[in-house]
Amino acid sequence: MPLFLFIVVKVQNIFDILQEIAPLDLAQSWDNVGLLVGTPEGQVSSILLALDPTTALLAEAEQCNAELIITHHPALFRPLKSLRSDRPTEKFLFAAVQAGLHVIGCHTNLDAACGGVNDVLAQLLALQDAVPLLPDTTEGCGQKTGLGRIGMLSAPLTPECFLEQLDRAISPPWLLEAGPRPDKIHKVAVCGGSCSDVSATALRGGADVFITSEVKHDIARWAEEAGFWLIDAGHFATEYPAMKGLRDVLVKRLDASGLEVSVRCAYQEPPLRLAAGKAC
């Protein structure tokens, strides 16, 4: 009679694989990443990936029998003085603990990793020879890791055509711009999430345009004076595609390790939307 070996997958097994994909030492010093809720010894048969830790996510985790939730934005970022279910910032954590769920955060380590947030964004825009905008000293995937990416389009585009390409790539709910549009776009810099503070680095790198989000007022004015085109494509839109990218990589690593775990990406919508009202 053949013997079938059942491998019990634990949170630690998933964490070890995530360490290969997005090592914790790539995270910024101010960040809070890793196992934030639960225990390394917890058993895992199903994983739910999401950009944001929301209470709606917990209902989806229950539907797909997920024991482990992995989010990009950490569920626990700042120190808490309490853990109450009646406060918005604590609701998710309270409910996750009650449900016995395990929660891992992969934030700036996933931003900087090879194949992470910024590589996905660069790939969606078909950038060639993309390299980190802010290189890290840690080597990975045959190239340096780090925040942002800067690379070349296969052929120059007009600003209008580039905007169409950007819209198709990430379906942003809006596109805001600052600074003058150049005649042609050839070299492009990207940094998913709130990275307008590194706009000057993108300019020094020779970029014709820099795509990021949450562009600050003073940075927008700086772009005017510097003659540099900035595009604010929204925090959600510039990071959300990376969740599918993480799922694809995680599934491959699990398969290679012989670990049978279901991995699903949660569908989420941007928390900000354009306000539209009817005439009074």
Rank of each mutant, 00 (worst) to 15 (best):
F236C: 05
F15K: 12
S199H: 05
L58Y: 11
A95C: 14
E62G: 09
D136V: 00
P156N: 04
A256D: 06
T55M: 11
P40W: 01
S82C: 10
L157E: 14
S262H: 12
K144E: 10
G100D: 08
S257A: 10
V9H: 02
P74E: 12
A237M: 02
R204G: 10
G42K: 07
G42S: 11
A178R: 03
T145P: 02
T89L: 14
K216D: 06
A96K: 04
S82I: 03
P53W: 07
D86F: 07
S262F: 10
P23G: 05
Q143F: 07
Q98K: 12
R204A: 15
E160S: 13
P173D: 04
W229V: 00
L80R: 15
T138P: 06
P173M: 02
W174A: 11
D136M: 07
K81V: 07
Q143C: 10
T54D: 07
F15W: 12
I150N: 00
L101V: 05
L203S: 09
A266Y: 04
S29Q: 14
E225W: 11
L51P: 03
R84A: 06
N65Q: 11
E41W: 06
G205Y: 08
G206T: 03
M152R: 15
L175C: 03
D183N: 06
L133G: 06
P172S: 01
D16L: 08
L124P: 04
D136P: 08
V188L: 06
T55I: 13
A169S: 07
S82V: 07
R264Q: 15
Q123G: 09
N118Q: 02
G105Q: 05
L24S: 05
L272V: 11
L83I: 01
G100I: 08
Q98R: 13
K81R: 14
E20N: 13
L26A: 07
V249N: 09
V97K: 03
S196Q: 10
V188E: 04
L18I: 13
D248I: 05
I185C: 06
V261M: 10
